[in-house]
Computed example of a mutant assay.
Amino acid sequence: MTEMIEAEQLQHRDSLLKRLARVEGQIRGIQAMIKRGDECESIAQQFSAARKALDKAYQEMLICLAEDAILSPDQSNQEKLMQLRAIFTKYT
């Protein structure tokens, strides 16, 4: 059972790192567009795409935090709910 959880955690980590690498590439592309003097609208479109990609990565991280709270065997259900509330209050 723990091997399956560890495999899922590795998969989530790899997925998040790939997503962040794509965002990094988008940001580098935006920098290049600005240096070239590309149209503002084109740059704005790329900013929007990068923001959405970063937001998606952030959502995945929040899901990870929530899963950790929910799956914690050391806490009561009430403590888990309190932790989830704290996560969403602090990070959203």
Rank of each mutant, 00 (worst) to 15 (best):
K52S: 15
K18D: 05
D68V: 13
E8G: 06
D55T: 07
I30Q: 00
K35M: 11
M33W: 01
C64N: 09
F88Y: 15
I5M: 11
K18C: 04
F88G: 08
L16M: 12
A21K: 14
F88E: 02
I63C: 04
Q83G: 03
L17E: 14
G25S: 09
M61W: 02
A57C: 09
M82V: 10
R13W: 08
S42E: 14
E6R: 13
R22E: 10
I63N: 07
L20T: 06
T89Y: 03
D14I: 10
F47H: 07
L17D: 11
K35G: 07
S48W: 02
I87K: 01
R13N: 10
K52L: 14
L84R: 02
Q11Y: 12
L65A: 02
A69K: 00
A66W: 00
M82W: 02
L54D: 00
I70Q: 09
D74S: 15
F47T: 05
E3Y: 03
A7Q: 13
S15E: 13
I87A: 01
L62F: 12
Q26G: 05
E67H: 13
A66H: 02
E60V: 00
I27N: 04
E60K: 02
Q45F: 14
A69S: 10
D38A: 12
C64F: 08
L65H: 05
S48C: 10
Q83M: 15
L71Q: 13
R28T: 05
A53P: 14
L65T: 00
I34R: 02
Q46H: 12
I43F: 00
Y58L: 11
Q31M: 12
S72V: 04
M1Q: 04
R36C: 08
